[in-house]
Structures are given as C-alpha cells and as structure tokens.
Simulated assay, not measured.
Amino acid sequence: MASDAFDAMKHQMTEGAGFIAALDQSGGSTPKALGQYGVTEDMYNGDAEMFGEIHAMRTRIITAPDFTKQKVLGAILFERTMRGDIDGKPVPTVLWEDRGIVPFLKIDKGLEDEANGVQMMKPIPGLEDTLKDAAGLGIFGTKERSVIHEANSDGIAAVVAQQFEVGRTVLSCGLVPILEPEVNIHSGTKAEAEAMLKDEIAKHLDTLDAGQEVMLKLSIPTEVGLYDTLAEHPRVIRVVALSGGYSTDEACERLSKQPTMIASFSRALAEGLSKQQSDEAFNAALGSNIDKIYQASI
C-alpha cells in the first residue's frame, strides 16, 4: 500500500467520528449469521453456496446508501470477502476508494478449548503470507479474537501475551493489529476480569517500540471509563467495543456511557436485516442501525 493511503487511513481511524463495522463472520458462525438474515440451511448446498449467500449479504450492506465514511470509519472482513469482488472490483478497493471506509482483515482461525478460564487462539498457519496478500490488496489492519470467561490471572496473562505476540507479526508486515481479548458478557466475574485485563494490556503496551501502534477491541466494561487510560496510551490508535451478544439498543446504551470507546459491532449492525426485504426496507433498517451505533460512538 502507498504510504499516503496508509497515512490517510490511519488519520481516519485516529481522528474520525463513527464506528467500525464487523463483517467478518467465518465458517463456524456463517450459518448463524445467515439464519438471522433469513437464509436457512435448507436454502443452500455446501460451503460454496453458503459463502456465496454471505458474500451477497455483505455486498448488499457495503453498497447500501448509508454505508459510507460519514458514519462508518472501517470494516473488518473475512478472508474470503477480502479476496472477493463487487462488480469486478476487489472488496477492499470498493471500501476505501468508493465508500471511504478503511478495510481490516480478520486473521484468527478460531478458539482453542477453554483452559484457565480462557480460550486462546488456535494456531494461524501461513499468517505472514496472508498478511503480505492483505497489504497488497490495500488492507490497513487486522483483527484477532480470543475470549476470557472468568477472572483467572494466569489465563488472562496468557491471552494478552498471545495477542501481542501475533500483533507484533502483524506490525512487522506493515499492518495495524486490532487486538481483541473479549470478556464474556455473561461471566460471573466480568468486572474483575476486566480490571486484570486492563493491567495486563497496559504492561504489554509499554513494551512496544516507538512507531508500533495497535488498536484494542474490548467488551463494553462494567466500570464506566475503565479503558480510558488505555485509549490515551501513545501506542494505541483507538479502543473499540464489541457488542458481545447485547441487542443493538442495549449495546448502544452501554457504549454511550464510555467516553473513549467507539463501536465495532457485528450482530448488532445486522439486526433486523433480511434477504427477503425490498431494497428500500433493507436500506432503511440498516440505516437505522448505522445511525444508532454512530450516535453511541460519538
């Protein structure tokens, strides 16, 4: 990617008003995402048709009238989507050149079984080759998810260490990592886990060199303003919030109380959308979701 394009994307992610759309449901979560969109499993045969349906859904979202940089700063893509096209043009190019939206790539390959109250990321084979391809396609950054289920200090330390280890590989390839150690919103020790997580992240941020900057994607914390000091850290471009299973309205209500976090919602963004809707109804429903999430983010 040309340095001027990278600089423009970084400026938008640092200073822009709006949120990041998460369009990155992968193999395991695709049937559920399609089901919410009114496409049941008896409506497609095999993975090729399934991924065709999800690509059509994402294309409909990306090309909708309200899906522009006025409210949507960035979009996180599944690898198949990154390598796909819309009307013959690569999806990352459509996002940045046509919509003014910064493209990101989901790079994790799912979660290990729970141990020490957390789920680590599975190994990511061929990561550096994927990152080189992503850079060539105009991708600005990446996203990697692990999950914390309880306030276990050893587990949380391991999750954060793995997040930063992968993040350093991303940085070495010239991209900006979004580190996503999600805290399960249903955890009985959510607030305690978040306090531990904040301290672990802060320790690792202090080990980054000048010029190594990351983003953080975190569950909306129980304590208002908990992550403000992370957002202000010189190695952090932005702290974004995941919806974590909250409804759009509840996620937005909770986020609106957090002064330094913006949204990066997936399910909440697509709430109420259906393949069976007319374009007018679809665009109205999506536009309403975009506006709610935008207002909560600013």
Rank of each mutant, 00 (worst) to 15 (best):
G27Q: 08
S187H: 11
T93I: 15
A270C: 11
I262F: 01
A210L: 08
A115V: 14
E97G: 09
I178E: 10
A21E: 02
Q12N: 09
A8G: 04
Q70R: 14
G52V: 06
G155V: 05
V214D: 08
A151Q: 09
K198G: 04
A33T: 11
R267V: 04
A231T: 01
V176F: 06
S187G: 01
K203L: 11
A22R: 00
D87L: 11
K122Y: 11
E165V: 00
T169D: 14
G35I: 13
L23E: 03
V159S: 09
E213C: 09
K122W: 15
Q276W: 00
T14N: 02
T59I: 06
H233N: 13
P234Y: 04
Q25N: 12
A17E: 14
L105M: 15
G52P: 04
E112A: 15
H149Y: 14
F282Y: 07
G126Y: 03
M82G: 03
G287V: 01
S26Y: 11
P31E: 12
I220S: 03
G84T: 08
F164K: 00
F104S: 00
D154A: 15
A202R: 12
L269H: 07
T59E: 14
D249C: 12
D206N: 14
A270R: 04
A191T: 13
K109E: 07
Y246W: 15
Q212E: 15
A157W: 07
G155N: 05
K190M: 09
V147L: 12
I237K: 00
V176I: 15
T142I: 13
I148L: 06
L127M: 11
T93E: 14
L208P: 03
E223Y: 06
P234A: 07
G88K: 12
I220P: 02
A251K: 04
E271D: 11
V224M: 08
M215R: 00
M121L: 13
L226S: 09
Q277H: 02
E15K: 14
L95E: 05
T59K: 14
